[in-house]
Design a protein around this nucleic acid. Structure first.
Lengths: 187, 187
DNA sequence: GTCTATATTCAGATAGAC
DNA sequence: GTCTATCTGAATATAGAC
């Protein structure tokens, strides 16, 4: 099934953004990668701000679908947290691809405000998901050594994003796995 | 005491790099900020790669001096870890300034290889410092709920760097404080 | 929808005067 | 050490032909 140009473009842009950040890819790069001219990229996304916003929106929707899947597949808090950890691990693609939230947060000042607002919303949604998981854990007892659900959520998101940075800095998954091991030991 | 131009330049560059990443500041920015022309910046640092490498080197030396201070001032593992957390908190400067390691790691692909090598070394030194702290904790018992020192070190670095990202995304220190609270509860 | 051609702006960098 | 002047390349973006 051949994808339309717009989708191919979004895929290429997302991958580039997650590897090199917002400043790190250009319309020229994207055009060359998918075999059209950069003026044609402007036909699909009139400017880079629109492209970035669309990118985060699509990423956001995918995240919501993913958590719906986790809820359907895992009844316990431990199962849902484990699935979330795997999600962040898989996003690394072996070690050189950050989650879009990390890639865009660190370059915050260069990101167009519209796109940054989207990132903030996404971040909030991730925190809410994690907080719900830890609230469930307080009921089902599937995670050891529980603290306040809000703090656990903030700490877990920080751990996952930091672990991604570490993996990327070394270009392999070992630092990620070591960083999350103590959390997984509680499951 | 008036600083020499070179030092003023390094200070401005470090601040800019930690706010906007490697791609996010230019010789023109620096020149304007300190009131000289950009050709004069090239006199002090012939190219941006040299500037970046110098920046990380200086940051590295400062980190080593900081940990020496922590060792002198705090005999317990808990005291040393708390000082390290404070160090990362202070580096945020209220919420819009990342540690150089985070700022440069996320833009890895655009960073000149020499500078990236320096970042890798710095990262390694931070991990060794944290690992030594957790090894001491195994002896002095000042940190509760201890796991393997290597994993604790990786997890702590990830937590601190992730907590910085969270604080920066929201432009205030609250997410940082919430993310590290459970760790501090163990001290 | 995609192209050529072009405008504008800005980046990193160098030569050479003072 | 700092300046003016200039080069080169690349980025975002637009106009208009096909």
């Amino acid at each position: 099934m051949a994808l339309d140009t717009r989708t191919t473009l979004l895929d290429a842009a997302e991958h580039a953004a997650r590897r090199r950040g917002y400043d790190g890819f250009s319309y020229g790069d994207l055009a060359q990668q998918i075999g059209i001219r950069k003026a044609s990229v402007h036909y699909h996304f009139p400017n880079k701000s629109v492209l970035a916003t669309t990118l985060v929106q699509r990423y956001f929707e995918r995240f919501l679908r993913a958590t719906e899947g986790f809820k359907a597949q895992h009844a316990s808090a431990a199962g849902r947290l484990n699935a979330t950890i795997d999600h962040y691990r898989a996003a690394l693609e072996g070690g050189d691809c950050l989650c879009l939230c990390v890639a865009f947060s660190s370059g915050r000042d260069s990101l167009p405000p519209d796109a940054m607002d989207q990132v903030t919303s996404l971040r909030q949604a991730i925190l809410e998901w994690l907080e719900a998981v830890f609230e469930l854990a307080h009921l089902d007892g599937s995670i050891a050594n529980l603290g306040d659900a809000g703090c656990e959520a903030q700490a877990t998101l920080a751990l996952l994003e930091g672990a991604q940075l570490a993996a990327r800095a070394q270009n392999n998954l070992v630092p990620f796995d070591r960083a999350v091991q103590l959390l997984q030991d509680r499951l």
